[in-house]
C-alpha cells in the first residue's frame, strides 16, 4: 500500500503543516514577550512546535504500520455542508419555511431513500414545528415567510 494513502501519514502530515504554519504565523504577527511577562504569541508559538512534533511521531509510526485511509464521501459532504450554507443565506431574507425546505431537499439528496409521502409530510410538518417551537415558543425573530421585494 502506498504511504500517501496511509491514514496516519496523511493525518500526521497535516498536523506538521498546521503546526509549522501556526508557529510561523504567531512569530510574525504577535509579540512573544518573555517568560516572566508572556506576550500573546508565546503560547501559540510553542503549541505550534508541539503539534509539529506530535504530527511527526504519528506520521513516522505510519511507515511501519499502514492502515488505508477511509474514503471521503463527496456526495455527503456537498449535500450536508451545502444545506447549512444555503440555510445561512436563505433564512434571513426569505424566512424560516423556505430555509427549512432547502435544508430538507439538499440533505435528502445525500441518500435518496425517502419516499414521496415521507418527503411531503416532512416538508409540511417541519416548518410548522420549527415555527411553533422557535418563533412562537422562544420568540426568535425569524418569521415563517418573508417577501424581500
Amino acid at each position: 500500500m502506498s504511504l500517501w494513502t496511509s491514514r496516519d501519514f496523511v493525518g500526521g502530515g497535516a498536523l506538521i503543516g498546521l503546526g509549522l504554519f501556526v508557529s510561523a504565523y504567531s512569530y510574525q504577527t504577535m509579540p512573544l514577550g518573555t517568560i516572566s511577562r508572556m506576550g500573546p504569541g508565546l503560547m501559540p508559538f510553542s503549541l505550534g512546535w508541539l503539534l509539529t512534533g506530535f504530527g511527526a511521531i504519528i506520521a513516522a509510526g505510519s511507515i511501519a504500520n499502514r492502515v488505508q485511509i477511509e474514503k471521503f464521501e463527496w456526495r455527503n459532504f456537498l449535500c450536508v455542508v451545502g444545506a447549512i450554507i444555503v440555510f445561512s443565506l436563505v433564512a434571513r431574507p426569505l424566512g424560516m419555511a423556505p430555509a427549512v425546505a432547502c435544508v430538507l431537499v439538499l440533505a435528502s439528496l445525500a441518500e435518496l431513500k425517502m419516499t414521496k409521502v415521507q418527503f411531503l409530510a416532512l416538508l409540511v410538518a417541519l416548518p410548522t414545528l420549527c415555527y411553533l417551537a422557535f418563533s412562537v415558543g422562544l420568540g426568535v425573530p425569524l418569521p415563517l415567510f418573508k417577501w424581500p421585494f
Partner: peptide, 26 residues
Amino acid sequence: HILYPIVLIFICIGMFTVNNNVFDLW
C-alpha cells in the same frame, strides 16, 4: 434517512438563534 435531515434542520435553526447571525453557521 428521515432522522438526519431533521437533526440537520435543528442544528441550523438552533445555531442561528444563539447569536442571530449566519457566521456561526459557517
